[in-house]
Design a binder for these strands. Structure first.
Length: 394
DNA sequence: TCTGGGGTCCTAGGACCC
DNA sequence: TCTGGGGTCCTAGGACCC
């Protein structure tokens, strides 16, 4: 039996979030993004889109197109709070809710919708309720797999409801341009177009008629594409929020720079933020990566794996600075970034076990245990404090 | 008008080991 | 004399998504 997977995609989420707390912004062109000289648009309200403003557009261009727009810097803690309400709301319809990103989720509604005579009206009331209770608009897509649900929610925006059954694939997806295929981006689309593959239908027949070549070119991705296009892809909605695999921060300089001292100061700041993120996530890292983007937007990276996991900002700073200094060409750069990878749980195995193992008293182990308990206690206080701040702030 | 910042996953070559 | 085959780890780069 095919599942009924629902993809719920918030429309212009950040812009709508701003309109929720500022009713005087409703109906106006709201543009959320980086406001500096090198910022880009993160989200534009539908009013702003009428002027041609869209995501990833340089903010300067957006100002030209929409001089009367309301330009806002973005408030991620607030968006995250609204996002939590959104996912909480979805859980009214199924316990199987997967957070695909801050503004979209998959819901396995097989059990509810297969018993309903009129699934469309259930979805319409989900959509209406979200708007009435939280103020958020969404597009809803339904299909037997996550891929089809995702493609469906993309077809009618804002406030659309679209269903793609397996038997609808040819009719509904084949005519779409290849660029609309979720998982095929700009580069691959350009490559495919250069071979005369312009639509999803062209692509589907190519996977059959030219299987060998396609397999060679796409490698592992080929199977994902074939499954997706035939309606047999991933249909497992995972309600567990996955552990992060890396945490990183990067910064674009106001103007390109080759000032070694300036760059090192920024690396220090970024490293500190990474260290703070690690302790918030209760992780240590066994890998540090330093990224550099040059004036031509070419990105390069230097990284090192560590035998012993680290978490202290001081350690991250030292390694990041060294990675940069050892490889810096002296040329102007646009961006620098620091990322911690190969994350492992903060819990110290030895410290955890030392209370219960062979019973011998070991001063070192005991100290490690005490330290780890102290750290935990501190963290709890910090967490309680930040919750209280949040409550007062909003 | 001049291109952000946060991530995930995959590939490929070389090192190293058995 | 002249050069295996498999497996895993490390590193760099790239595509993609929101």
């Amino acid at each position: 039996m095919a599942k009924i997977i629902v993809h719920v995609d918030l429309n212009a989420f950040f812009a709508t979030a701003e309109q929720i707390r500022r009713p005087d912004y409703v109906g106006k062109p709201v543009i959320v993004g980086g406001l500096g000289p090198r910022g880009v648009v993160s989200t534009a309200s539908y009013e702003a889109r009428k002027y041609g403003v869209h995501s990833a557009m340089p903010i300067g261009e957006a100002r030209m197109l929409c001089p009367n727009g309301i330009f806002l810097p973005g408030d991620y803690p607030y968006y995250e709070m609204l996002s939590r309400s959104f996912f909480g709301y979805l859980k009214n319809y199924s316990s199987l809710v997967e957070e695909a990103s801050i503004d979209e989720g998959f819901v396995d509604m097989t059990s509810l919708l297969s018993k309903t005579k009129d699934p469309l009206s259930v979805l319409a009331s989900l959509q209406r309720g979200l708007l009435e209770q939280i103020g958020l608009r969404c597009s809803i897509g339904v299909g037997p797999t996550k891929f089809l649900a995702k493609m469906a929610s993309d077809m009618k925006k804002p406030m659309g409801i679209t269903i793609i059954r397996r038997k609808d694939i040819k009719k509904m997806l084949y005519p779409l341009p290849i660029d609309n295929f979720f998982g095929i981006g700009k580069k691959t689309a350009a490559h495919l177009r250069s071979k005369g593959i312009n639509t999803i239908g062209d692509f589907a027949s190519e996977t059959v008629n030219n299987e060998f070549e396609m397999k060679k070119f796409f490698g592992k991705r080929f199977d994902y594409y074939v499954d997706s296009i035939n309606g047999y892809g991933d249909d497992v909605v995972n309600p567990e929020r996955p552990d992060p695999k890396s945490v990183g921060h990067s910064r674009t300089f106001m103007t390109d720079t080759d000032d070694f001292a300036e760059i090192k100061a920024v690396i220090e700041e970024l490293s500190k933020e990474v260290g703070e993120r690690l302790s918030k996530e209760k992780k240590k890292c066994k890998r540090i990566v330093v990224n550099v983007k040059d004036t031509n937007f070419k990105v390069s990276s230097k990284s090192i794996n560590l035998n012993e996991p680290i978490i202290e900002s001081e350690d991250i700073i030292k390694l990041a600075k060294k990675l940069f200094a050892d490889n810096y060409s002296g040329k102007m750069i646009r961006l620098v970034g620091v990322t911690a990878g190969n994350l492992v749980p903060l819990k110290d195995r030895n410290a955890q076990m030392s209370l219960f193992d062979d019973g011998e008293y070991d001063e070192d182990k005991t100290q490690v245990l005490v330290d780890s308990l102290n750290r935990k206690a501190n963290k709890k206080v910090v967490m309680i404090a930040s919750e209280a701040l949040k409550k007062n702030g909003y």
